[in-house]
Amino acid sequence: MPVSGLVVTFNSPVDRHRETIELLENVPEIETGDFRNGKLAIVVDSPTRQRDQEIWDWVRQMPGVIDVAVAFVGFDDGQIHTGDE
């Protein structure tokens, strides 16, 4: 269950990308945070690594997005496995 804090960079100020941000906000795993100029902070809390990767790739494909950078990654796969056993 990875948790990651990401910085999404748009090609122009964030407020010109309302539609994209609404799309992001509609995804239950994504929380949006501060933005300034062309950068938006988001947190992705997804059940599996695969889903995390999917969201990551999806965000990168969004219109106006030119870069997605990692600010924080929570590695706690180990704990989940123990919990299951």
């Binding site: 948790v3 990651s4 804090g5 990401l6 910085v7 929380e31 945070g33 501060d34 933005f35 300034r36 950068k39 938006l40 902070a41 988001i42 947190v43 809390d45 950078a69 600010a71 924080f72 990654v73 929570g74």
Partner: peptide
């Protein structure tokens, strides 16, 4: 999640 958000926001 809060930590992740703080980290991302500080980069922004």
């Amino acid at each position: 999640k809060a930590t992740a958000m703080a980290a991302a926001c500080s980069m922004v």
